[in-house]
Write a protein that binds this DNA or RNA. Structure first.
Lengths: 213, 213
DNA sequence: CAAAAATCTGATATAGCGTCAGATTTCTCT
DNA sequence: AGAGAAATCTGACGCTATATCAGATTTTTG
């Protein structure tokens, strides 16, 4: 399924086992720092120190911190196809809300796990950075396709109005999913718990996708 | 209505007219650069050069580029109360969809105008930067309150399910609104026009707020 | 185990940040 | 108008982090 992509250093040479491991540890350290502070505040020296190596080593594998972040975003994206599969569950009758809930909960879990990297990915993508746009598109396309497919089914069955565009609605729903984990702390100001959030989102998803109240 | 807040420089002294003008030009230059490249890539020297002054002058008025961005976010937030007022339009009968459409269109316009600054504001807020969190909360609260109020009306009238939490739903809808302009270019890949987007969002907003299909 | 390949790092030039003392401009008062 | 005061601006500089490269160190190979 996935061909072994050969990792290379900055000069294009393939990496041996030791190098692969060093690179991986640099990525882990970067992820950890990214979840603590903003990219701008991350010093390459610090990443290196965390791994017990020198800045020069970092530059052997990555052009800059941004490139390391890009690789992390690619790793996170690998979880998406599994997540998209959840849409294959039933959308008929009482079980439909459970399908919807599972998807929402899984999506939030994915975000909680990769929060810092995904936020950065989206910022860069929104700012027009092509490489991050590509990663985001690759990550979201399976989800968008699935939502859009369900909406089209709903429209074909006459349950969902044809005034909405399936892809636009899919993007809107994906936006909700993407932004929820980021908001959930602020929402506590309004007395909204995480469960409220999951349930509410699940209802909006279900309603928009199937037309059911 | 709004008391004149006295502007001050880094050492706390009030600004005279010349200084106010210089500060304003520095802010404009910052906004312009922010819309061209990422914060990380903005050099203070460059902002200064654009205004025909020196870096030291910039530091007279702002602690760093982030602070200038914060001030820009505060300026953008001043548009929100007017936007929130749009929710006072009718939500009864056929006109309801027009109210919804107007809100969505205005929100997107606001984002198109302040895109770079708002994206940065959200990234910083998501990363836990208190000052940006405050600005975002101040900006969004009027909108959230309005949406939540409509939903509660819908629930009281028995049109909207009580399984959803009004504030969570409001936040979800605000997320859609906030993220749409950022997406609209990528959505063209899927053949979604801006009008599709406005219409689809307006429908989701209407449906969630009033329970109407 | 010596030579070759792979990997790592000390040293460094380069560049932007942020500060401050003092220069320049504008204002005030007679 | 013009001297002194206040406001505003800037040149110069010390500091920190980036990013590179030649060469040192470690691992692999035959």
């Amino acid at each position: 399924m996935d061909a072994e992509k050969p990792l290379v250093d900055q000069s294009g040479r393939a990496l041996g086992p030791r190098a692969v491991q060093t690179r991986e540890r640099l990525l882990e350290a970067t992820a950890e720092l990214l979840s603590k502070r903003s990219v701008r505040e991350i010093r390459v020296v610090e990443i290196a120190r965390k791994v017990g190596t020198s800045p020069a080593t970092f530059y052997q594998y990555f052009k800059d911190v941004e490139e390391a972040a890009l690789r992390l975003a690619e790793q996170a994206a690998e979880e998406m196809p599994a997540l998209a599969k959840l849409f294959d569950g039933t959308w008929q009758g009482k079980k439909a809300i459970e399908t919807s809930r599972t998807i929402v909960a899984e999506f939030i879990r994915h975000w909680d796990e990769h929060r810092a990297v995904l936020l950065l990915r989206n910022l860069e993508a929104d700012e027009g950075n092509r490489r991050f746009m590509r990663v985001r598109r690759n990550a979201l396309t399976p989800i968008l396709e699935q939502i859009a497919a369900r909406i089209k089914e709903g429209q074909a069955a006459g349950q969902v109005t044809r005034d909405i565009n399936a892809y636009a609605a899919a993007a809107a729903l994906a936006s909700i999913l993407e932004r929820l984990s980021a908001y959930h702390k602020e929402l506590e100001h309004f007395g909204v718990t995480r469960d409220d959030l999951v349930e509410t989102c699940a209802r909006i998803l279900l309603q928009t996708v199937t037309g059911k109240a």
